[in-house]
Write a protein that binds this DNA or RNA. Structure first.
Lengths: 235, 235
DNA sequence: GGAAAGCAAGAGCACCGCTCTCGTTTGTTG
DNA sequence: CAACAAACGAGAGCGGTGCTCTTGCTTTCC
């Protein structure tokens, strides 16, 4: 991308600082009012500048949202990677799985609007640009590499593994192209299911669909995560 | 709620008709531009009336969205219930499960904006009123009653069932209060997991998180649904 | 028949994203 | 050092939004 070198001139330095200030203010507003109500004018007001001036730093509101999107993806991605690394016994796959899953949900609960921005309905006609892909991939890649470790450790899937027909193998070719390690078809399917379960659960919880059905989200989430760990043979 | 009786006077009839027309136009716009871009003024334009006049029928844009929310919930709920009933062999639990799951996804793919309205990020500060609960419950209740049938038929869960601690039993008391039948704790947990997996998968797919990873959504979804059926012992 | 309620329409308020212009500041180059 | 070009901030303005208020008209009901 553009010049990522350190700002030499005073102007470049001021630009970097103001860009950061806009992002911080936008991030604050995002956390308070949510993505849909994020207003460029309000950000400008917060910073004491004319709203038109902000357009020198972000070409549009969508561009600003994209920047926040990447920041948030990286934030949750880093939280998840750190949670994984925090488990000193690398062979404690179930422990790592639990740490990772609870890191995702912990971040989501602490930053519900950011989570909604990442995993909720996409904004109007806006399609996330390719630039977001690397940041967005951090969490799924962490999950996949964990199940790959389980395969290397010789753990067997405990949940029933259906035969994977050739069509399904083809359908999953994209993932194999994105990863450098090789997972068995059955384990890959199970991993994707766990991925969907994880985010499905968090979305259902955060978006209010478990209201009055599940009374204690923490407890139930723990049960779900443990069950997934058992399915994946991580225990 | 308000008078649900047939309109007697000409005025009441006109009111019912116009309410319907507003809903239809709004629904059309919802499908075209999505919930966030739905505009009261555009609806009024479409109907050739002043925007202020629509406020006699819906107190606010959120009220209009709520009405669309309920309609959509009922639509997908009915699609799911019909899919279940369409399986003549009531003992073919796996077939019913497949029909139900594919009905949910089929509706979602055909009505992505409506799906986003229901299961995506909630709109700004808006909380779905209690009036939406019955309609919203139709799909999960269908899923639950299906697994309940499996229990009555003596099917055994095939995926590993972790012991359900008392705290988790308490956490799930809300669901038991909403249903009249009794499912074992283990089966209830598995059902909730399947529920989360189902909607998690559809959300990940529709919201673009499987982009370039999964190449054939239909095939993969089928694999997921079949796997869930096996887990639940429906085969 | 007349009061009361329901109604459509228009003007208007405060806000939004975004663009354009204008005068100023900054950096570069001859 | 001077001159030019690029970047910048501020302001006005456009077309759009949700929503309210007032003003008349129509329908309903007593």
């Amino acid at each position: 991308m553009s010049s990522t070198s350190a700002p030499r001139t005073a102007r470049e330095l001021a630009r970097a600082e103001l860009t950061r200030a806009i992002l911080d203010s936008a991030r604050k507003q995002l956390a308070e009012v949510g993505p849909a109500a994020l207003s460029v004018r309000a950000v400008a007001r917060d910073l004491g500048m004319a709203s038109s001036a902000t357009y020198r730093y972000f070409r549009s509101r969508d561009d600003l949202l994209t920047a926040l999107l990447i920041e948030s993806y990286d934030e949750v991605g880093e939280a998840v990677e750190r949670a994984d690394c925090s488990v000193t016994d690398r062979d404690d796959l179930a422990g790592r799985w639990r740490a990772v899953c609870h890191a995702v949900r912990g971040w989501a609960v602490a930053n519900p609007h950011e989570y909604a921005l990442l995993y909720g309905s996409p904004v109007p006609g806006y399609a996330a640009p390719e630039a977001t892909v690397p940041a967005a991939s951090r969490v799924p890649l962490t999950l996949l590499s964990l199940t790959h470790d389980a395969q290397r450790a010789g753990r067997k899937l405990e949940a029933p593994a259906l035969p994977v027909p050739p069509a399904e193998v083809d359908a999953l070719a994209g993932i194999r192209a994105l990863t450098d390690f090789t997972i068995s078809d059955e384990r890959l399917v199970r991993s994707l299911i766990a991925w969907a379960t994880l985010f499905g659960h968090i979305s259902l919880e955060l978006f209010g669909h478990m209201h009055r059905g599940v009374l204690d989200y923490d407890t139930h989430f723990t049960q779900v995560v443990d069950t997934l760990a058992a399915d994946l043979g991580l225990v």
